[in-house]
Amino acid sequence: MDALANRFYAAVRTFWRGLESEVCKEMASALTGPQMYMLHYIHRERQCKLTQVAEMLEVKPSAVTVMVDRLEKAGYVVRANDPADRRAILVEVTPLGEEVLARAVRKRDEIVEEHLARLTPDERRLVTELVEKLTGGFGA
């Protein structure tokens, strides 16, 4: 089982890195993989504290500040003081950030569809169901 687990991990990692690389290539350096992940999280939360983003990424708040600085400089997010807690900083996605994220998601979907097209309809259904089953123990 150990060899199979290693093969599985290597295949999933290779697929994920290849997907991320292709999407970033399409984005013409508009976003790095980690920036895209952060932008997606902020978009999903609508507005969140920088400390929330740091916790989600499991990094120090200072690392998040640097990444948010770059996203803000590119016009993808804006920061504001939290009216409920003046010590906290809120971040949210701008319309330009929404646009670049939507473009990245469309490209991601195209790439996934290209890879799934290599499989028969039954294989596509099966692999999807199996991955859903494997990820069932993780949070959304």
Rank of each mutant, 00 (worst) to 15 (best):
V78T: 09
I42R: 12
V77E: 00
H40N: 12
V78N: 04
V100T: 08
V78F: 02
R106S: 13
E55T: 13
K60W: 07
A30T: 05
E110D: 11
A88T: 03
V78R: 10
V112W: 02
K60P: 00
D85R: 14
P95C: 00
A30K: 07
E58G: 05
T94W: 03
A74F: 15
A84G: 08
E114C: 09
L31R: 05
V59M: 08
H115W: 12
R103S: 15
A104E: 09
K49M: 01
P83W: 01
S29D: 15
T94Q: 12
R46V: 07
N81D: 06
V66P: 00
E92C: 07
E72H: 10
E99F: 09
R87Y: 05
P61I: 07
R44D: 14
L90G: 01
E72G: 13
T65R: 11
T51Y: 03
D109C: 08
E55H: 12
C48V: 09
G97N: 05
H40L: 14
A28Q: 10
V64C: 03
K107E: 15
V78P: 01
L101Q: 06
L50F: 01
I42D: 08
M56F: 15
D69V: 04
E99M: 15
L71F: 11
G75D: 14
L119Q: 01
R87E: 09
K73H: 14
K49W: 02
R46G: 02
M56Y: 12
A102P: 01
G75P: 13
V78E: 07
I111Q: 06
T51L: 10
Y37M: 11
K107W: 13
Q52L: 07
V23D: 02
L101F: 00
L71Y: 10
L119N: 05
R87Q: 09
P61M: 06
L39P: 12
R103F: 11
A30Q: 14
A102F: 04
R86K: 07
Q35M: 10
E99N: 12
E92D: 04
S62N: 07
R87M: 02
L116P: 12
V64I: 08
R103Q: 15
C48H: 03
T65F: 05
C48G: 12
G33K: 04
L71V: 10
K25R: 15
K60S: 05
R87H: 05
L39G: 01
P34R: 00
V68P: 00
Y37G: 08
E110F: 10
I111N: 05
V59G: 04
E45H: 13
V66C: 01
N81F: 00
R87N: 05
R44M: 11
A80D: 01
L50G: 05
I42A: 09
L116F: 11
I42F: 11
L116C: 13
E45F: 03
Q47P: 01
M27L: 15
R103K: 15
R103V: 08
C24E: 13
M56T: 04
A88R: 03
P95Q: 00
Y37T: 14
V91T: 06
K60G: 10
